[in-house]
Every structure is written in structure tokens, then in C-alpha cells.
Amino acid sequence: MPVTAETLEVPVDLERRRAGLKAYKPKTLGDYLELEPPPWEPVLEPFLARKSAMMIWSQPGVGKTWLGLQIAVAVAGGGTIQGLGWKAPKPCKVVLFDGENGQFTLISRLRAIMADNAIEGLDVEAAKRNLTIVSRADPEWPQGLDFYDLSTPADQRIIAETVEAKGYGLVILDNISSLADRFTDENSNDEAKAFLRVVMAIKRVASVIVMHHSRKAQQGMKETFRGASALEFPFEFSMGLLRIAADDDRRDLPGGRIDGAGFTISISKPHRDRVEVNALEGLAFLLGDFGHWLPVLPAEGQRVLPANAKVTDERLRAAVTSRRFRTQRQLADYLGVNPSQITRRMRGLGLTLPEPLEGLADDDDDEGDF
């Protein structure tokens, strides 16, 4: 039998439901006019608020897993993701459901994130305490017990109840394909609605980020998320991470070429409440050394750095110690600041440029440092 909203219907006690609905009093226009809008309570600035949801989609190998883990750590410990400038103003409890990655990937990347200051201003002890990871690959998962399947009413209810009972502030679902085993047709709006029940249930008590795959762009069509259009329904904001090709000239940064993960932001559903967030469209980043995201030159006329990505002392130290810059001029060009500012701040922090990584191109600027 195909999975649909109807076939997944949970049996209800009709009389109990009638009694509950009878006790509910809908608000009138007059009631609403006397209310104040709820305050914006950010979980991850600039786009995710308390009890809201967003979707992040991309092809494999773009950096989605790195990004999801960095978001989880940043929100759990309160901090800013280096290079992106996305900030969790205070720590909160986070649960990440990972249905795809093996233990080697999870352990190695989490260690890299924690060891390399990828999250600026992180409360490390709070992050260790607040982040829970539920992994399909965990060798201690009970033998013979199926992993969570978010396309079933039982697991939807269990997860929603557990999130509320344990006080999680953020739930990350990575990803739809690996956490909804009973889906047989991603293009079915009925099947999408059945899955989205769990997102709507969690949103009543916590914020939600859903990671998803994209379908490749076809002739005359933009790349977008895979599956039915109904998938975007419960999200306040949805964005894609478009691959930066291996031969893209934007990978040639002043300090040397960057290979590996990299993306350009594509917004598929503009933010309902934070219109300024939609200016992220077109910004591009590469994953550099130490798990830091490096802004790269976007299309002409767009910003190099997002407006909230300030050059903090931590960010300056990370760039200096990356060993990708031969001169302070290269460093200033990359950070998007005045060269004289770099000179003063490096002097104040007692920083000097170390010997660059072997193989980096010589700088053609014969003026040297400042």
C-alpha cells in the first residue's frame, strides 16, 4: 500500500477529540488586534528563530554535512561559524538525527570542528553537554531494532514527544531520504505531507532544520530541491547550496587554490519575516583549512563578505595561521579590509605571517608587507 497522508492516519478516540475541540476557543479579530506580535528570538542568526523551520538542500559533496555539524555545534555551545558569520547568540540543547553518515565521517569531522576553532566564541563545555547525535551508524544501536523512520506515525509521535520532554531547542534532520524509509515516490505531494507532519509537530516546541538533496538542473530550469513542491510548505526559509565546480576560477584565492567542498547560496523560498536575509543569494564560500568557510568573489556588483561577517580578532588569527598568505596585502584583500587596518591589528595582537604552505604561488606584488 502506498504511503499517503490517509494511510498514515493515526487512530483517534473520537469522543476525546470532540471534547478537546469543544474546549478550544478560537480568537476573533478583536482578540488578535489586542495581542502583540511575538518577539524575534534567534536560534541561528540571521535566519532561524525559535519554533521556526528551514530547509537546506544540495547535491552530495558540496559541504552540507560539514555545515549541518557546524550549525549543531554552534547552536549547542553558542558561537559564530567562521567565514559565514552565522551566529547562535546563546547555547541551547540540540539533537541531530543522522541517517546517512558513517562513524568515521562523524567522528573525524566533529573532532576537526572542535579542534580548529571553526566556531568562534564557542562555549566548549556547553556544546559537549547540549549536543546529542542519534546516528543510524552507531554500533550501540539496539540489534534488531529498526532505526527511526519519520514517515511512520509512531516514530513521528515518539520524536515530537521526546523533543518536548527533554527540552531540545533545535532539531536537525539529516536527511529526508535516509530518515523516511517508507517513502516510495518523492514527487508525491501526499507522501511529502505525511513526512511533514513531524516537522509541524516539532515546530510547536522547537526549531527545525531539514537537510535534503537536490535534483540536478535541467535545460532551461534552475537546480532546486528534490521531490514534491509540498516539501517547502512548513518552512519559513529554504536555501540551496549550489556546487562550485572543480575548474571554477573562484577557487584561486590570494593564498592559493582551494579544492573540496564549496557552494553558492541559492534561495528557493525567501524568508517570510526577515527580508534582509534574502540578500544572501549569490554569496559563495569554499571550505578551507581548519574547517573555516572562506568567502570567494561573487558575481560583479555583489558583496564579497556577508554583512554580518565582521573581521574579529579570532577571524584574523585564523586567517593568519592558515599559512595561505605570503603578504599582508593578500590577507587584506581576502578579508575585504583596508591594508593599513590589517597592519595595526596584527601589531596589536602580536601576530606575524608564518611561512606559507609549500606550493603556494609567489606573490607578484613587489611592495611586500606594509
Rank of each mutant, 00 (worst) to 15 (best):
V3S: 05
E9C: 03
E15V: 00
A19W: 08
L21I: 02
L21C: 06
E34A: 14
P38E: 13
W40P: 10
F47A: 07
W57C: 11
S58M: 05
Q59W: 03
G63K: 07
W66S: 05
V73C: 09
A76Y: 08
A76Q: 07
G77R: 08
K93A: 11
V94H: 11
V94T: 13
L96T: 02
G99Q: 13
E100Y: 08
Q103Y: 01
F104G: 10
A115I: 07
A118H: 05
A118G: 06
E120M: 11
G121P: 01
V124A: 07
A127Q: 10
K128L: 14
R129C: 06
L131A: 07
L131W: 11
T132G: 02
V134I: 14
V134R: 08
D138G: 07
P139A: 09
Q143V: 13
D146M: 02
D155G: 04
E161H: 10
E164K: 15
K166H: 15
K166R: 15
G167D: 09
D174V: 13
S188R: 04
A194Y: 07
M200A: 15
A201V: 01
K203E: 15
M211E: 11
Q219V: 09
K222N: 10
F225N: 02
F233V: 05
F237V: 10
F237Q: 09
M239H: 08
G240C: 12
L242M: 15
I244K: 06
I244S: 00
A245S: 13
D249L: 05
P254S: 00
H271Y: 14
A279P: 09
L283H: 09
F285S: 04
H292C: 10
A299V: 06
G301L: 04
V304A: 08
A307C: 05
V311D: 09
T312P: 00
T312F: 03
V320L: 09
S322P: 00
T327Q: 05
T327W: 06
Q330S: 01
Q330C: 01
G336R: 02
P339S: 02
R345D: 14
L351K: 02
L353Q: 08
E358Q: 14
E358Y: 03
A361Y: 04
D362I: 00
D366L: 04
D366F: 03
G368V: 13
